[in-house]
Design a protein around this nucleic acid. Sequence first.
DNA 1: CGTAGGTTTGACCGCCTTCAAACTTGGTGG
DNA 2: CCACCAAGTTTGAAGGCGGTCAAACCTACG
Lengths: 252, 252
Amino acid sequence: MRDDEKPNLRRLPLFREMMTPTFDSLMQIAYSQSFPAQLELIRQGEYADFLHVIIEGSVELHASWNGRDTVMGIVHPVSTFILAACVYDEPYLMSARTLERSQIVLIPVADVRVALRRDSDFAMAAMRELAGGYRAFVRQAKNLKLRNSLERLAAYILHQSCRSGDAATIVLPVEKRHLASHLGMTPENLSRSMKALQGHGVVVQGMRVTITDRARLAAIAVPDPLMDGPVIKAPTVLPRRREMPSLARKRG
Amino acid sequence: MRDDEKPNLRRLPLFREMMTPTFDSLMQIAYSQSFPAQLELIRQGEYADFLHVIIEGSVELHASWNGRDTVMGIVHPVSTFILAACVYDEPYLMSARTLERSQIVLIPVADVRVALRRDSDFAMAAMRELAGGYRAFVRQAKNLKLRNSLERLAAYILHQSCRSGDAATIVLPVEKRHLASHLGMTPENLSRSMKALQGHGVVVQGMRVTITDRARLAAIAVPDPLMDGPVIKAPTVLPRRREMPSLARKRG
DNA sequence: CGTAGGTTTGACCGCCTTCAAACTTGGTGG
DNA sequence: CCACCAAGTTTGAAGGCGGTCAAACCTACG
């Protein structure tokens, strides 16, 4: 892997506090690879070979069953995914696919496990990462069970805005088809919900969504840190992360 | 806490492999307490004081938002809950309430954190526990997004049967009201779904559910280890765990 | 035996999906 | 540069899954 990628990894919560020798040994074995868009990186049911770290691009986690398919989450740089399957040594519960050309660092799970045993700071960080992932999915389950689709969409828009430093205008980071599946609805329903939100504090033009009346939107979404995640606003200017669209698939 | 409770704790995956001194020091500080039915042990939004270990009884994890409420999970002995909030030092995402009189061991989070730092075997076990919890919620989200309510119920019945060593007859472990909320539906809908399953390989009489035609039921549920959990059958005779009903609340 | 709480049943309604067609949009090649 | 095609999105109509409300029915318990 390229040397200029290492500092980015080193800054990650997962790697930030680990000992330098452990980090360096992992980096020696790790390799970075570029994948084209629409490539299936991981298939659910298979076993973990590598811990994945996305450096550039975007990856969609999805799951399928009985011919249906749904988007479970979308991963943006810089972050890791499928840590749980690495730790647990059980099959992946989700598949992963690139949405656009993506740069990904692969670290063999065997080496990750050795590092976890050797470096307790790394183990603690991994634990925190897993706890965070756990909480994210608890939130997702709450979101699905407690809100209807209009409320989920409203909350999503507010959340995206919040992540961009309360920007009035956001650009959807993925195709609407994927967003719909992510939010647990059909593309048709998303389209209608978008229209329904117009006249409730939102203007939509293509991928661009503008909040004209935050209070009215919030009245529908009823944001809650216990469901939408802690209110950690990005600096008003976003960190280097592409908030631009791409390509992808759908839900059942 | 009573000495005769310690071996039960020691057998838990979370505590099994930790060093004896660490375990003993935790046990000295921990205390065991009996709680009446219907007691709110934990309220979402609060911060973690104690790691909870349920020794006897049953506890329901639920979440509420905007006046609605839903059951997120049900915890049976012997297992721990709210590890994630302990590790992360962020507010609980779920509330917890006893369904029946329950014996619970409380371990102060501060001591748990110290033990995690000191004992890397314990840290590894906690990591595995968290990874397991993470995967459980991924499965729950898949279940909610990919199956409809009839399919969820069918899968639930098969799963319970499987956990009882493929027993033909199971007794619902909680009130139907709670089960309904757990499965993401209303009591009325659960009632109708139960009736719908009769004539598809199931006979229902009160809390007793009998599978008369496993194949037909499976045709509806389409069981999948990636969604319903690994096929770890309990020994044909269940471990000491009460599979009997109790009391509780509901969903929105 | 009576009451309270849980469950079932029925009627109705609304959210959301399905299917189908029209309409954009973006990319490609004449 | 424009025409065309493929893919995504929007719109409409119809229907089903599941929710709501209300009443009747059970069941447990005092």
